[in-house]
Write a protein that binds this DNA or RNA. Structure first.
Lengths: 166, 166
DNA sequence: TTAAACTTTCAGAAAGTATTGAAAGTTAAA
DNA sequence: TTTAACTTTCAATACTTTCTGAAAGTTTAA
């Protein structure tokens, strides 16, 4: 396979994966492009490579920076902003976990706790408490594990995987 | 809090969580409704409770059945179809993991493997191989862990969580 | 200052998704 | 059979998200 074809396939796949998990396709594609490019790129480079508009590129670069997975690089003597992303996959996974935890797990936990404060003792209410309680318990466990992962180093992750396997 | 309010809040939250993870909102809401309802419900019950059309209800019930998390219940002597969902949260998590693995992780792994077959030995190509290789390695690890989880029983899950924590 | 180089914003357009409702299809009792 | 009860499909529409391009904003150098 040729480099250009492989590159394109990877960028498309990363965009599609993003979409399936609720992340803007262009955001995924920009990230993919930065991942496979060693040097930092300008907005124009990205516009040209991905055939997207300036507004689109700018907006998604901001989002990627909000997520903490793309950094701005300023080159001495240059006005233009360059962008790059860390190439450490574990660190990327940690950052994504951190953000999704904050954005999606936390709000759900808040609701689960709130609805537990329900009045009454009909079977209906009991069942509701049971289900949301189970959900809350499970979510807390996952959240705790995620937190551990986020704070962890490389060794910890592989050690856990080893432990899981045996 | 009153039951009706809690119920509504939970249903909305579940729908919103679904959206954030690329799952149709109505699909999430139907699942939430079935979760907190002990008895199986008909399409009409669901239409009425969630104020959605027959087509919408039917379509999303089919999707939930495709995902393997909602079951059809046939009541003797009745023509109508009833629907219900398992109330075991761990089992739900396993089923969702199974499906997302099949639908999203597998295609990405296929692409990552394909693009590794790239020709050339320029620094560009080397870097591409490095990054996609890392990604592939990480994905395989996660996939393996997920597979283990999917096949696991309740005990295994909690044991792993305990191991992670220490 | 002014002007040039660059970034951000945002209204409107396009594309993508979800939803409706009614017609077509299916099934089982009469 | 026929009919009634029910489910599925699907074209049309509504809604949401994404994208564009140009105008407005900002920063730096002259």
């Amino acid at each position: 396979m040729q480099y250009d074809k492989a590159k394109d396939q990877f960028i498309q796949a990363w965009g599609t994966l993003g979409s399936a998990w609720g992340i803007n396709k262009a955001m995924g594609q920009i990230h993919a492009l930065l991942l496979i490019t060693e040097e930092a790129l300008t907005t124009e480079d990205i516009m040209e490579e991905l055939k997207i508009s300036r507004g689109n590129a700018n907006m998604n670069l901001r989002s990627l920076m909000d997520w903490g997975i793309v950094q701005k690089v300023l080159k001495p003597g240059e006005r233009k902003e360059y962008f790059t992303t860390g190439k450490d996959i574990l660190e990327l996974a940690r950052q994504v976990s951190r953000e999704r935890r904050r954005r999606e797990i936390e709000p759900v936990m808040r609701v689960l706790n709130e609805v537990q404060e329900i009045e009454g003792d009909t079977p209906q209410v009991e069942h509701f408490k049971k289900v949301t309680g189970d959900l809350s318990g499970f979510t807390k466990q996952v959240d705790g594990a995620l937190d551990k992962f986020i704070r962890s180093d490389k060794n910890w992750f592989f050690q856990v995987l080893m432990k899981m396997m045996r």
